[in-house]
């Protein structure tokens, strides 16, 4: 399975985890407390992030702490993220464009039940 920095950020929960620990190490339970999804699911995301080299786990007393490895993240912010931002902006603009021309010509369709 692919394990690199781009795989790591492909998932919104993993991006959120990175944001959480970017400036402050947190132990695993503290990370999980920030999410609605199950603890095992969070553990799995953290495992992937570790394998992708974006976070390191350090045992400290009885707790395991997650620390962001921002050096690798830098590569992402410089490259793929910029294009993601670019295309997200373009698709937003396309949506606005489609909606604006729709108003005058097409009535909204009833929603499917």
């Amino acid at each position: 399975m692919r394990r690199d920095v781009f795989q790591a950020i492909a998932d919104p929960t993993r991006r959120e985890i990175i944001n959480l620990i970017a400036h402050k190490s947190l132990h695993l339970n503290a990370v999980a407390d920030n999410f609605q999804i199950s603890r095992p699911a969070i553990s799995r995301h953290i495992k992937i992030l570790t394998e992708c080299g974006l976070i390191v786990i350090r045992q400290q007393g009885r707790e395991r702490y997650c620390k962001a490895h921002l050096k690798n993240l830098h590569q992402v912010s410089k490259w793929i993220d910029q294009y993601r931002i670019f295309w997200a902006g373009k698709l937003d603009a396309l949506e606005l464009h489609l909606n604006s021309s729709k108003k005058t010509t097409v009535k909204p369709k009833p929603k499917n039940k």
Binding site: R2, D4, F6, Q7, A10, W79, I80, Y83, R84, W87, A88, L91, L94, E95, H97, L98, N99, S101, K102, P108, K109
Partner: peptide, 24 residues
């Protein structure tokens, strides 16, 4: 290292013909 392509999906409340026109 080979970079993963960007893949983004978006649902638009418009027909294929209308979206096609908007992008071409």
């Amino acid at each position: 290292m080979s970079m993963q392509p960007i893949v983004m999906e978006r649902l638009f409340t418009a027909s294929n013909a209308k979206v096609w026109k908007a992008i071409t």
